[in-house]
Design a protein around this nucleic acid. Structure first.
Lengths: 233, 233
DNA sequence: AAGTGGTCTAGACCACTAT
DNA sequence: TAGTGGTCTAGACCACTTT
């Protein structure tokens, strides 16, 4: 939206500085010869970008860049294996086991109940870059297991297949060091810094049906975020 | 917005399933007796939440939950010291030094040029939880240094003071292990998993004026994200 | 050609804030 | 009480996709 970009540039240039107030919506209407709705949507764009914040009855204010407003995404992580030409997934193991305490808690089942464990490894250009371990609820009436075993590119977990009926999920980034098992798989040394990316998926009954984690060497992954207008002056 | 929530609940219940198409905007107008603009804004809300995606000329489609769409924020990190009653910042050191190679690169200055180093420690309930190291461009004409030294609550870095005129910033989450120096400060053992949160701030001339990093024990910090509607069925 | 989402107009009324 | 942002109406025209 042109007006939003215009205002963002002005903020970036320092015309409106952090803490300062923007012209009121009705003023902007007159200044730029647009309707109130257009002004409102422009401002909404800036609010979404956390560049300004609005206070009803008071005004629209320019935010100072602040760490708290930064958001990280999975782009960096995803980019590691979105190229289907050079990456492939190898299933190291897929077997039925009894749930240990952690798995039982995560999947909301009883300890010792049967679950499916899948261990995968993601290879790019012959290099093992991600180790994935996933525990699935054992439920013959659901096709989730077949779905999961068909995920041969891990990219499926990222784009969504359109077939799975999973409702919600949660993700957690944890700091870790490589265990000796992981280090061997990832061609690294034990105790090296690493990211552990845990995930839980829920179905439409809000039951957890899958949990697991990715392990990636810390020297191969960074999560990035930006603050501020992101506009060149 | 009521209509947005209504649609989100229907999606969560499985009325519209991933990959499926929502009723067209004009149909929703008639169904719920609202104006086109209202429908559009409702759908915009769902688009922003990554629950649906729109394709011009084709329709509005329900997204499958996917890892790639997840976003992390700093809430978890910020919550560690937003309580001003129990947390305080101690400046361990503040001195002028010559820039090493890394610092020179980060601040876009010459190696050996003078920079200000500030080492801080964040204490909550007598517990050292975050170690902060920051390098500032030495520029007597700018008040940034005084500003920074006045940051006695680190929260200032998060909410923005309204005084600083910093324009943009970047953040990076890296996996690390505690050095022996850090371990001593944070009452932990060396080689323990940790997060290193690097930041760079730029002023209105797009010059980097500050860079540094936070170190936090991995067992005290997790970054969380959610996928899907986040709605109870 | 018909239907879809994308953008916009020119207002209206309301809730809230400032003075 | 005047001014602010928050929400909404009832259309309009356009770009794009589908058939």
């Amino acid at each position: 939206m042109q007006l939003a970009n215009l205002l963002a540039r002005q903020i970036a240039k320092g015309v409106f500085f952090p803490g300062g107030r923007l012209p009121s919506e009705s003023e902007l209407c007159i200044l730029y010869h647009v309707s109130p709705m257009t002004v409102r949507r422009s401002i909404k764009i800036l609010v979404d970008k956390r560049i300004v914040s609005t206070i009803q009855g008071s005004g629209t204010y320019v935010r100072a860049p602040n760490l708290g407003g930064a958001t990280f995404n999975m782009e960096e992580f995803h980019s590691m294996f979105k190229d289907k030409e050079t990456t492939k997934v190898k299933i190291l193991e897929a077997l039925i086991i009894g749930a240990d305490e952690t798995t039982a808690n995560k999947l909301a089942i009883g300890q010792g109940e049967r679950v499916i464990l899948i261990r995968r490894i993601l290879i790019r250009n012959g290099d093992s870059i991600i180790y994935h371990r996933e525990y699935l609820r054992y439920d013959p009436t659901r096709p989730i297991v077949e779905d999961e075993l068909e995920v041969t590119s891990l990219d499926g977990l990222f784009v969504g297949t359109g077939e799975t009926r999973l409702k919600n999920g949660s993700l957690a980034i944890k700091a870790a060091v490589l265990t000796s098992e992981e280090a061997e798989i990832l061609n690294a040394v034990p105790n090296q810094p690493a990211f552990r990316l845990e995930h839980v998926f829920f179905d439409f009954g809000n039951k957890p049906v899958s949990w697991g984690w990715f392990v990636c060497r810390g020297d191969r992954l960074v999560f990035n975020a930006t603050m501020g207008t992101g506009v060149e002056t």
